[in-house]
Structure formats: structure tokens, C-alpha cells
């Protein structure tokens, strides 16, 4: 065995033993009442943040930070990377092109008749959901209006953000239906009246459940070893991917459905009508 491997194994073993001793010796520590913690995570009654004189949930600050990160990144890419794009792409160019192409293809695939605006919308929505959910991993701290420190979670774990995105997606679908088929398209969209609620609460429920599981795990210090790797990182990554895919897929599917042109009824020929009458 190499010397470096021996050192690595030894250090790992020592750390593990130290952690186990710590777990056994430490008194179980509870950071407040679990019911209160869960209630705060859902309702955000006690952790409002002051934003330009308005009392907002931490989710809105997360959404703002997401917007700043994404817009700055997009601006940097636009200024420095896109002018240097080559016919044979490098790794970074390939990554950017793959992301754009994924949403563009999804829009074209699910809504073949009208997809220009849909592609742009699901691209923005997808990026927003994915990046904002991953923001949970960083665990940014912010000062609440009460003066306490608040950890910024995923914006979509806030019901207001989920409703905003769900309703906006529904409005996008409605606008596509009206643009393509007029009143028929509007009728087709309004037929799915439960869509904004289902999309909003699907997002909210999925991301909130992840948040609650994480809160539960972190509530007890004994569970704060190893387990957060699974529930914190993997759950968040999976949530980010799955919820992005679900929302953009649902939006593009319904958009494609309402923008599909009306099928013209085949006119019966006179001879066919005569033959049918003679029978």
C-alpha cells in the first residue's frame, strides 16, 4: 500500500472515531420546538424579511438572489463567451448549446405548431427552478425583520413563488391557445381550469417536502452526520432536476395541446350521401 493511501485511511478512521465519540457523548440537542420549526418553514410567519419597506418571505430574497446570479452569468456569457463561439464547440459552448437546445427541442417536440415563445418561456422557467432549488445547498443567511438569522431556502418552497410560476405558466398556455385558435384555444385552456392550482401546488409540495425533510434531519444533531449528504445534496439535486423537467414538460404539453390547429370536418360528398340515403 502506498504511503499516501495509508495516511488517507488513518486520517479517515480517526475522524470517524472522533465523530462517533462525539455523537455518543453529546447530549441530544434540540434547536427549539419541531412543530414551530415546521410551521415556520411552511408559513414563514416569524421570519419575514424587510425588503424596501415590504415584509416578504425569505423565498422572495432567494428568488432575487437567483435572478441576480443568473442574469450576471448570462451577461458574462453574452459578453465574453458567445462572441467567441466556434463552429466546432468547446466544452463550455457545448454545455450552453445543449441546455438551450434541450428546451428548444422540448418546445418543438411537444408543440409543433407554435413554439417560439414557448421555448423561451420554458428555458427561463427551467433555469429559474433549477438554479433557485440548488440555492438551497448554499444555505445563505439573511437577517429577518425580527433580527434573527434566517437561512434562505428554495424560493419555490414558498407558496407565493409556486403560485406565481404556476399561474404564469397557465397564462402562457392561455395566450398560446388564444394566439393559435382564438376563442377555441381559450376554451381549450379554460377547460383545464385546475391546471394553475395543480402546477402551483405540485411545485410547492415537492420543494416544501424536501425542505421539511431537511429541517427534520437537521433538527437533531445526531442525524446531522452522513445523512445530510443524502437528504441535503441528493434530494436537492433530484428535486431541482425533476421539478424543472415536470414543470417545463407539463407547460409545453398543454401549450402544444391548445395550439394545435382545429381539425376540419370532412365534407360528405353528394354521391356518398345519396348512397347512404338509398340504404
Amino acid at each position: 500500500m502506498k504511503k499516501s493511501s495509508i495516511i488517507f485511511v488513518s486520517v479517515t478512521a480517526v475522524v470517524m472515531v472522533a465523530l462517533l465519540i462525539g455523537i455518543i457523548l453529546l447530549e441530544p440537542h434540540e434547536s427549539g420546538d419541531i412543530t414551530e420549526t415546521m410551521k415556520d418553514a411552511v408559513l414563514h410567519e416569524n421570519d419575514k424579511i424587510d425588503f424596501l419597506g415590504l415584509k416578504v418571505n425569505p423565498g422572495f430574497i432567494s428568488a432575487l438572489i437567483t435572478t441576480v446570479i443568473v442574469v450576471v452569468f448570462a451577461a458574462v456569457v453574452r459578453i465574453f463567451a458567445i462572441p467567441r463561439f466556434k463552429l466546432q464547440p468547446g466544452r463550455f459552448q457545448l454545455l450552453i448549446e445543449t441546455i438551450v437546445n434541450f428546451f428548444d427541442s422540448l418546445a418543438k417536440q411537444n408543440s409543433p405548431h407554435r413554439n417560439g415563445f414557448l421555448g423561451a418561456y420554458i428555458f427561463a422557467a427551467g433555469i429559474y427552478i433549477f438554479v433557485s432549488t440548488l440555492l438551497e445547498l448554499i444555505g445563505l443567511q439573511w437577517v429577518a425583520a425580527s433580527g434573527e438569522s434566517v437561512t434562505l431556502g428554495a424560493p419555490l418552497a414558498d407558496i407565493n413563488a409556486a403560485i406565481a410560476l404556476g399561474v404564469l405558466s397557465y397564462l402562457v398556455i392561455l395566450s398560446g391557445g388564444i394566439a393559435s385558435n382564438g376563442f377555441v384555444g381559450a376554451g381549450r385552456t379554460l377547460k383545464e381550469f385546475s391546471l394553475p392550482i395543480s402546477m402551483s401546488f405540485r411545485l410547492f409540495g415537492a420543494l416544501l417536502s424536501g425542505l421539511l425533510v431537511t429541517e427534520l434531519v437537521y433538527h437533531f444533531i445526531a442525524l446531522s452526520f452522513v445523512l445530510p449528504v443524502v437528504v441535503g445534496v441528493l434530494f436537492t439535486l433530484l428535486h431541482a432536476l425533476i421539478q424543472t423537467y415536470v414543470l417545463v414538460m407539463l407547460t409545453s404539453l398543454f401549450y402544444g395541446e391548445v395550439t394545435e390547429p382545429k381539425k376540419k370536418k370532412a365534407k360528405k360528398s353528394k354521391s356518398g350521401a345519396v348512397a347512404a340515403a338509398s340504404k
Binding site: N57, F60, T67, V71, I96, D158
Partner: peptide, 30 residues
């Protein structure tokens, strides 16, 4: 569920800015 229309509108406004910026800075040029 502490639903607040003002915050919903704030989120919508924030998302619209994000979507526009992404469209003009990334989606359209690429």
C-alpha cells in the same frame, strides 16, 4: 397558507425580469 398577493406579484415581476434577461442575453444569441 400565508398566501400574499403582493408577494405573488413581486415573484411574477422578478421572474419576468429574469425571463427577459435570459431571452435577450442567452437564449436568442445562442
Amino acid at each position: 397558507l400565508n398566501i400574499d398577493w403582493q408577494q405573488i406579484l413581486l415573484h411574477l415581476f422578478n421572474f419576468c425580469i429574469l425571463a427577459l434577461a435570459l431571452y435577450f442575453l442567452l437564449y436568442k444569441p445562442v
